[in-house]
């Protein structure tokens, strides 16, 4: 579903992604691991079509990401590392706006709001970090997307909501959706992911099935020579 081949993107300071190749198949959850500045977000930006790589390809369902960003976005649910919402908008208004733009009904949104206990009457900016994250989760899942790109999705969530969120990811996997999850939480990876991609200094250093890894934390630290 998501296919990255030899993707290179270099920022003026020399950082970025170098010759990255991996894929996320249907019904698969891939954990994308790496410390801050390793190139995870840059890769995600290229997948979303915000940026075009200097070389290599980045495709979703066979469609080039940068050129077909608008079309691809119909099938993508995205949670950003730094969540962003329009100003002075209530959660309900925001969901209605998304449903109009995406052309989806509000039934699933209402179900998700109930599940995550979202206060839809509050102005989003006034919500706490955890509650904002819940709004982002609902907006990413409400149109039942085929591909989910999740950048630190459980950050700020309490234990109960984390549990509910992981259940939602596992359900999406069972329904044949492709999920790329960038996270620092190994427990989350172990509970949901089928495969793990570890990135270091913009290069993919490991791409392994979770069943082939005995100790995820040890493997991660080995990649980083710690």
């Amino acid at each position: 579903m998501v296919n990255i081949k030899g993707l290179t993107f270099t920022y003026p300071n020399g950082k970025g992604v170098k010759n990255a190749s991996f894929e996320v198949n249907k019904g698969e959850v891939v954990g994308f691991l790496g410390p801050n500045g390793a190139g995870k977000t840059t890769t995600i930006r290229c997948i979303l079509g915000f940026m075009k790589g200097n070389s290599g390809t980045c495709k979703i369902d066979g469609k080039e990401c940068f050129e077909n960003a608008e079309e691809n976005m119909k099938d993508i649910g995205f949670i950003a590392g730094e969540i962003a919402f329009p100003e002075n908008m209530r959660a309900k208004e925001y969901f209605e706006f998304i449903s109009k733009i995406r052309g989806c009904d509000m039934r699933r949104c209402d179900e998700l709001c109930k599940m995550f206990e979202v206060d839809t009457k509050q102005i989003i900016q006034k919500l706490s970090k955890g509650n904002k994250q819940k709004v982002a989760l609902v907006s990413a899942f409400m149109h039942d997307p085929k591909v989910l790109i999740l950048d630190e999705p459980s950050s700020g969530l309490d234990l109960l909501m984390q549990h509910k969120f992981l259940g939602l990811v596992n359900k999406a996997k069972a329904e044949g959706k492709s999920v790329l999850m960038s996270t620092h939480n190994f427990n989350e990876v172990e509970r949901t992911c089928d495969r793990v991609v570890i990135i270091k200094d913009g290069e993919i250093r490991a791409d392994k099935k979770l069943t082939d890894i005995k100790n995820l934390e040890k493997t991660f630290l080995e990649v980083y020579d710690v």
Binding site: L48, A69, E70, M73, F78, A84
Partner: peptide
């Protein structure tokens, strides 16, 4: 603003629109 633009361009809205 990063926040404003990212919340629109994560939706199926083209740059043209």
């Amino acid at each position: 603003e990063t926040t404003t633009m990212s919340c629109y361009l994560c939706l199926p809205i083209s740059r043209r629109k």
